Computed example of a mutant assay.
Amino acid sequence: MQNILITGCSSGIGLQTALTLKENNYKVYASARKEKDVEMLRNLGFETFQIDVRNKKDITNALKTIIKNDLKLDAIFNNAGFGQPGAVEDLSVDVLKKQFDTNFFGLHEVTLQAMSLFRKQGFGKIIQHSSVLGIISLKYRGAYNASKYAIEGITDTLRQEVLGSNIFISTINTGPVTSKFRENALKKFNKNIDIENSYFSEIYKKELKARLETTEDKAPFNLPESSVANVVLKIMKTQKPKPRYYVTKATYILGFLKRVLSTSLMDKLLNKI
């Protein structure tokens, strides 16, 4: 039986992916940052770990347990992450570091430790959860954009460095998908952005907060969490998975336009989204 470690399974895409793989007879080690979420996963029948990807020891302990139990690790899905909204000029260095600590450095620590195991056993799959915002950038999402662009750069490099081995690196570029992403982003926005004293104060109040507070999925081409879960399932079933998978029509369209339009035209188009 193939096994996989998934980070960020408290809700949304991570939880749905864990459920989908479990239903398809994969052994899923589902992890979450908070104890209450770990308990929820345990009650759903998962073997689970409490992993804060910012904590190296959490990752090490989980991987040691997996190897002790199964003598191997087939795959990891680096899914843990969050979005920090706000205009670039309103992002302090500390806030930007916090975004990168989870989305990029945490992902990289999981990747490093998994790669060590994969090199020893001679096989493995690393699935990196990027975004359409790792391909194009949208205003007021600078911290998240930057973290996803960083994932793209380091993953593209790693993929070249494992070429010819039996280790496969796949990037998933997800577009608008139903999840608790906006709900969590709103908390970060209210906590870390000085809304009242910002140049963008009125825009924040009239547009951005309203978008984050809505419970409706009005984004064009929005898909359910299962759209990503099914891609991860496909990767697990594939002996030699592709290096990149787009999820939602929005990702395909924007990825194509990024390649064919001038930077100026692309900026004008994206500014309307």
Rank of each mutant, 00 (worst) to 15 (best):
101 D>R: 13
114 A>K: 01
43 N>G: 14
120 K>Q: 12
96 L>D: 15
12 G>D: 06
82 F>A: 02
15 L>F: 07
220 P>A: 09
1 M>S: 15
180 K>F: 05
173 N>H: 15
43 N>M: 07
210 A>V: 14
165 S>R: 03
268 K>I: 09
12 G>W: 00
121 Q>S: 13
50 Q>F: 04
45 G>F: 10
243 P>K: 11
201 S>K: 11
30 A>G: 09
29 Y>G: 07
20 T>D: 04
67 I>K: 14
187 K>S: 10
188 K>H: 15
14 G>H: 01
139 K>A: 15
199 Y>G: 13
252 Y>E: 13
50 Q>C: 11
165 S>C: 04
128 Q>C: 12
236 M>C: 08
151 I>H: 00
19 L>Y: 00
19 L>D: 02
43 N>S: 15
39 E>P: 11
134 G>D: 07
63 L>T: 08
218 K>V: 13
41 L>T: 10
156 D>N: 13
67 I>P: 07
229 A>R: 02
42 R>M: 05
203 I>Y: 11
116 S>H: 09
223 L>T: 14
143 A>T: 14
174 T>M: 01
188 K>V: 07
103 N>I: 07
142 G>R: 01
64 K>I: 13
205 K>T: 13
66 I>Y: 05
40 M>S: 11
232 V>G: 05
129 H>G: 02
137 S>H: 06
100 F>A: 08
47 E>F: 15
87 A>C: 10
100 F>Y: 08
200 F>V: 05
71 L>V: 10
36 K>A: 12
258 K>F: 01
10 S>Q: 01
116 S>V: 11
210 A>K: 12
64 K>R: 09
142 G>Y: 02
46 F>W: 02
210 A>M: 06
87 A>E: 01
214 T>Y: 01
190 N>R: 10
253 I>Q: 06
273 I>G: 14
158 L>P: 12
137 S>T: 13
172 I>Y: 04
107 L>T: 15
40 M>Y: 07
195 I>A: 11
142 G>H: 01
39 E>N: 15
198 S>N: 09
190 N>E: 09
273 I>M: 12
263 T>V: 14
56 K>R: 06
92 S>V: 10
269 L>P: 04
126 I>M: 03
19 L>N: 06
154 I>D: 02
191 K>I: 08
89 E>R: 09
18 A>R: 03
147 S>Q: 03
68 K>I: 01
150 A>N: 08
131 S>R: 00
